[in-house]
Amino acid sequence: MIVSRFNRSLLVLVVLVLAGLTLTVVPANAADSADSKIAWTVRTALSKYGSGRPKFTYTVKAGEQITDGIDINNTGPKKITLKLYAADGFTTGTGGFDILTPDKKSNGIGAWVKPAVARVTVAPGKQVQIPFTMTVPDNATPGDHVGGIVTVLDQKDPSGSGTVIHRRVGLRIETRVSGQVQSKLTIENLKLDYDGHNPLGTGHATISFTVHNTGNTVLGGLQKATIAGGLGVGSKTVKLPRLPQLLPGESWDTKATVDGVHAMLWVTGKVTVTPVFTDAAGSTASLNPVTASSRTVVSVWSFVLLIAFILGLIALVWLIIVVVKRLRRRSNEKVEAKVAAAVEERLQEKVNQ
């Protein structure tokens, strides 16, 4: 059996080095059978773009072509034959960085970068340098384009299962095409739910939203949410997980639950995202924050019952006031009648005398 897709089976061993970070995924039953003596490293070649670079970074114009190279060092005791390819990058579901496998179509870096050879054999203890060219299309869009160049070793599982184990080692390529640059994050699909039936009590508020990189630069970000009851009662601000580095066009979903929220008839939620830009030197800068708000009624029926209760209470108070006024009026009328009768009786007595 040959595993044709790198990320489909637990029988695949992937070793990926991108921007100086090594990620190893060890399969459940193939790691022990893989030849652990086979090992190699990659690094950026010495060129006019510098030495000792942790990754390839370029600032180019549309239509420009550049040439660079990747050094491959066989640190193991055996000869190895490696495949080379370039592909576009993407942010994984856990917030890491990865590049597309060869069976996926690339439209950016993966389509622009061409290694000088598609396959290379490296003797044990030796190093080779493979040049590559990057041809930026005339119609390339301004902004950041991210991908990588990767070496791949295909190994048959020694257990005889027929499985092919793919091991990848590569370097990240970051390219900025000159032109109008826009760094922008947008908050989308903001939803606020409240779990609680007492319109004047407390409950759990759940807020969810999507942050979309609608600009053309790579951006991270800081997130926070403010939850409050009606009229701002019991306002709570919670810090949310930091946004990973989102490539242009990518989105990231966030969901959080806040306990002990005072409803006060309705609940409001406000999300604030502060974009963070990282330059080529690794320095970061915060941009102007973006916000979005939402509101939800605690419970339609509890709200209706509360209004009915308030109206009923008002009606009861009004009724009591009316009854009291009538009783007072009747009492006053009786007193006045008694006084009038007493006066009349007194006058009659004087007349009779």
Score class of each variant (00 low, 15 high):
Y58E: 05
V26M: 11
K79D: 07
V17P: 01
K61R: 14
V42G: 04
A34P: 02
L23H: 12
K37E: 15
S47N: 03
S36M: 07
F90K: 14
L21W: 15
I72K: 09
A34R: 12
E64G: 06
T22N: 06
L16N: 13
L16W: 11
S36E: 08
P54W: 02
G20Y: 08
R43Y: 00
K83D: 06
V25D: 14
V60R: 07
E64A: 12
K61A: 09
T67S: 12
A34M: 11
G20C: 05
V25Q: 15
V25I: 05
I72T: 07
G89C: 01
A45S: 10
L23Y: 14
T24I: 14
Y49V: 00
L46N: 12
A39I: 10
V26D: 11
A31I: 02
V42E: 03
L82H: 12
G69E: 02
I70A: 06
Y58H: 08
I70V: 15
F56C: 02
T24H: 14
G50M: 01
D88A: 08
G50T: 03
T81W: 14
L84A: 04
T22E: 10
V60L: 13
L18S: 09
P77E: 08
G20L: 01
D32G: 07
V26W: 05
T22M: 07
S51G: 04
G50H: 07
D68Q: 03
D68C: 12
P77G: 10
T59G: 12
D68P: 08
N73R: 11
T67D: 07
P27E: 11
G63Y: 00
K55M: 07
T44R: 10
T81E: 13
Y85V: 07
A30G: 15
N29V: 00
T22G: 02
W40Q: 08
Y85T: 02
A62Y: 01
A39F: 11
S33F: 14
G50R: 06
V15W: 15
G63L: 02
V17G: 09
L46R: 12
K83M: 06
Y49F: 08
P54A: 02
L21M: 12
R53V: 00
K48R: 14
K37C: 09
A62C: 04
A39M: 13
K78Q: 15
Y58V: 09
A30D: 10
Q65G: 08
T22C: 04
T22Q: 11
K79E: 15
Y49D: 00
G69H: 02
A39C: 11
L84I: 04
R53L: 07
G69V: 09
S51K: 08
Q65D: 06
Y58N: 10
T91Y: 04
L16A: 11
V17F: 05
V42P: 05
I38C: 04
K79V: 06
Y49N: 03
K48L: 07
K55L: 05
V42N: 07
T75Y: 00
L18I: 08
A30H: 14
T57Q: 08
V25R: 15
R53G: 01
K61T: 12
V17H: 13
L16V: 04
A86R: 03
P27V: 00
A45E: 02
D71W: 01
K78D: 15
K55H: 14
G69S: 11
V25E: 15
S47L: 02
V60I: 10
D32Q: 11
D71T: 13
A19I: 06
